[in-house]
Design a protein around this nucleic acid. Structure first.
Length: 552
RNA sequence: GCGCCCGUAGCUCAGUGGAUUAGAGCGUCCGGCUACGGACCGGAAGGUCGGGGGUUCGAAUCCCUCCGGGCGUACCA
């Protein structure tokens, strides 16, 4: 049982006995919460529960003292004292830290919880249209979405990673027309790119590829037919490249979801009909409108244009119904902050379609701005301005790239200076963390060579009394708080920061405590601590999708 | 105008209700390699947590307001 749960039980029992004695009203008993005090003089764990219940009952310190007296002694708790305005500070026996070391070293679900057990979550991220190579902006989304998904799995959720792609519709036909223009140019025809068309050079190479495949058979085709045909030929190989790049980047999706299948199955129309039944649909100016303003949106939104084509957000209606029909309890849509203006409309649709708004969340990843040659450039696929994810991987490697994306909060805009990132790649903190891991592996190899055993289940952990050992054990213990918090807050950066702290704490231990020595008891204990640290570093890096090398 | 995000050390950023020492990396300055891996380590300088008001026993953290920056505000996505 995790130590905080045991403490909660102890304190709850104490509170209940105060209620039974009449010194606390029954309705004022909250779930006690525990935290690790920053200052070590304040004990191992502290709760503010007395401050919370004291309101209208008495002085916080008096309540705290009464509660401290009411808490039954146990083998776990060495002392409970009242401090500051009314905190209860707990000092624990060394056994809890030893338990941490053993559980971590033996990999028995350390850092895992079952909080989300039985909950099925869909995490949809990246979802870039297959109009060209996947870029670094998508790279940030891939790293973040993948890690959020891993964190949810670590807290017991069943998770599906999903990629939604556009293979139809106005925007994609524009892309098809752009490819068509390049196709015609390939055969020497004088043709301009469509206005707002896709201007990137990669469109040229796609057109060349198609030209080799089908020859000049389409050069006399009607523009609309040409665009449609080019689109059909272009997107599948582009999507394949996207899959390959993302897999190379360590991100694997469970489901690749095609927008056009929603239309083919009539799910978009069905969703609109459902809104119509609720009188949330109106025809105006020849278009069909969703009256989203009745549900918190700024204004109503078109779902079917006056030319009869559904809008992209109409597909979203069918898609959310489709997702829920697959049995998910929660949908997470990781969107770019430049789409935040559509969140209100989307949430209005969720409600209108009969779903609970609180079961859908849309974390927004702030924009990535590109800097190249000291100048800020606006990344745009249509303008052909971007840095390809493959290029980033080639230059700095997967580990450094992912790690960089995962050190920042999703709320922080990311300035991506491609020159600077390449230059600073060797100084990336990821190597500090990986180095600590490799160093531990090296120590363990040496110890085993010399006939020592690294068996945490039998190691005499009482021998660990040095302050640096104590610090390291405490840092390991906090992993069990960090993972659920990172998961709940959708905050991968908590894991990167923790990994650096753990590596740094280990390095201090390494400096002060020689692991392998003639003292076999002490060596056995320290080896167990090393194993525990190695496991936790590897686990944290694993959540981030970063490798944990045994040698560097 | 309205909406969302941001404003913390010279720079890039963590910390988002807890304890009169607010942290890290980089940069700057000083010092350290005869131990299991120096991709390192120790120390120093550097902060009105954008300004003001409020809530609270307690605020960088919550609320209001102002200032500054980014993004959005389409029958594009």
């Amino acid at each position: 049982m995790v130590v905080t749960d045991q403490l909660v039980d102890l304190v709850r029992a104490g509170l209940e006995s105060l209620v039974a004695a009449g010194s606390l009203p029954a309705e004022s008993v909250p779930e006690p919460s525990f935290e690790r005090p920053r200052n070590r003089e304040h004990g191992d764990w502290a709760t503010n529960v007395a401050l919370v219940v004291a309101k209208g009952v008495g002085k916080p310190r008096d309540v705290a003292q009464a509660l401290a007296d009411a808490i039954e002694p146990s083998g776990l708790v060495e002392s409970v004292e009242v401090a500051g305005p009314g905190f209860l500070n707990f000092r624990l026996s060394p056994a809890w830290l030893h338990d941490v070391v053993r559980r971590a070293a033996l990999s028995e679900g350390f850092g895992r919880s079952t909080k989300g057990a039985g909950r099925k979550v869909n995490v949809e991220f990246v979802s870039a249209n297959p109009t060209g190579p996947i870029n670094v902006v998508s790279g940030r989304h891939a790293a973040v979405g993948d890690t959020i998904a891993s964190l949810l799995q670590a807290t017991g959720h069943e998770v599906i990673r999903e990629y939604y792609f556009n293979d139809a519709g106005r925007q994609m036909l524009l892309f098809g027309a752009s490819v068509g223009a390049r196709y015609l140019q390939h055969f020497g025809r004088e043709t301009d790119l469509p206005e707002d068309g896709y201007k990137g050079d990669d469109v040229i190479s796609i057109a060349h590829m198609i030209a080799e495949q089908i020859g000049d058979s389409m050069i006399e085709a009607e523009p609309a037919k040409l665009a449609q045909r080019m689109l059909e030929l272009a997107w599948p190989p582009i999507l394949e490249n996207t899959k390959r790049s993302l897999e190379r980047f360590g991100t694997r999706f469970d489901v690749w979801f095609s927008e056009s299948t929603l239309h083919e199955r009539g799910q978009v129309t069905a969703a609109i009909d459902k809104l119509r039944e609720k009188d949330l649909i109106e025809e105006r100016d020849g278009a069909v409108w969703f009256l989203s303003s009745r549900l918190g949106d700024d204004k109503d939104r078109v779902v079917i244009r006056s030319n009869g084509e559904p809008t992209y957000s109409a597909a979203d209606l069918g898609y959310v119904v489709n997702k829920f029909s697959r049995g998910f309890d929660r949908l997470i849509y990781l969107w770019g902050a430049d789409h935040h203006g559509t969140v209100a409309r989307f949430m209005a649709a969720v409600e209108a379609l009969g779903f609970d708004r609180s079961s859908v969340e849309v974390p927004l990843v702030q924009i990535v701005s590109l800097v190249r040659g000291g100048e800020q450039i606006k990344a745009s696929k249509r303008e052909g301005v971007y840095v390809a994810l493959d290029e980033l991987i080639d230059e700095v490697g997967v580990d450094a790239a992912r790690y960089t994306f995962l050190t920042r909060s999703i709320d922080a805009p990311l300035e991506f200076d491609i020159d600077l990132v390449k230059e600073q790649a060797p100084e990336n903190p990821v190597y500090y963390v990986q180095y600590a891991h490799a160093r531990i592996c090296s120590i363990l190899r040496k110890a085993i060579d010399e006939g020592h055993q690294a068996d945490a289940s039998t190691a005499p952990l009482d021998a660990l009394v040095h302050p640096a050992e104590d610090e390291l054990m405490r840092k390991l213990a906090s992993y069990e708080e960090v993972v659920p918090e990172a998961a709940e807050r959708r905050a991968p950066q908590r894991i990167t920061h923790y990994a650096e702290e753990l590596a740094s704490t280990f390095t201090a231990f390494y400096r002060d405590c020689k692991v392998v020595s003639d003292d076999r008891t002490l060596t056995a204990a320290r080896l167990a601590l090393c194993v525990a640290t190695r496991v936790v570093i590897a686990d944290a890096l694993g959540l981030l999708g970063v490798s944990a090398p045994e040698r560097m």
